[in-house]
């Protein structure tokens, strides 16, 4: 499987480490009054779709960047790859990630 890195071009999946659902980027606020419940959900609840899935991949044997890869779990087709850093910055600025 090839992952088309936004800065480096196509790279073999063997260079990457898979972490999981991209929602892990949204860590709850520890100061929130409902922090315990939010952290429970954050740690234990995951969607496990048979189909399109946004997930985090780490380019360990490359530029050490985190990527958000949109992959179909049934076909392994990859339809989008973004730098997680760019997505996080866009979210901070109020833009909704695509």
């Amino acid at each position: 499987m090839l992952i088309n890195h936004p800065q480096l071009g196509p790279r073999d999946a063997a260079e990457f480490v898979y972490l999981g659902d991209a929602s892990l980027m949204h860590r709850p606020d520890a100061q929130s009054p409902t922090a315990a419940e939010e952290f429970h959900d954050y740690l234990h609840l995951r969607d496990n779709p048979a189909g399109v899935h946004r997930e985090l991949w780490y380019h360990e044997q490359g530029d050490r960047a985190w990527l958000i890869v949109t992959r179909n779990t049934l076909t392994h087709e990859i339809t989008n790859v973004q730098m997680a850093r760019d997505v996080a910055l866009a979210e901070q600025q109020g833009h909704v990630a695509s």
């Binding site: 480096l8 790279r11 063997a14 260079e15 044997q61 490359g62 530029d63």
Partner: peptide, 9 residues
């Protein structure tokens, strides 16, 4: 480029 060859960086 940085890559892996036989699992070595």
């Amino acid at each position: 480029a940085r890559t892996a060859m036989e699992h070595l960086s």
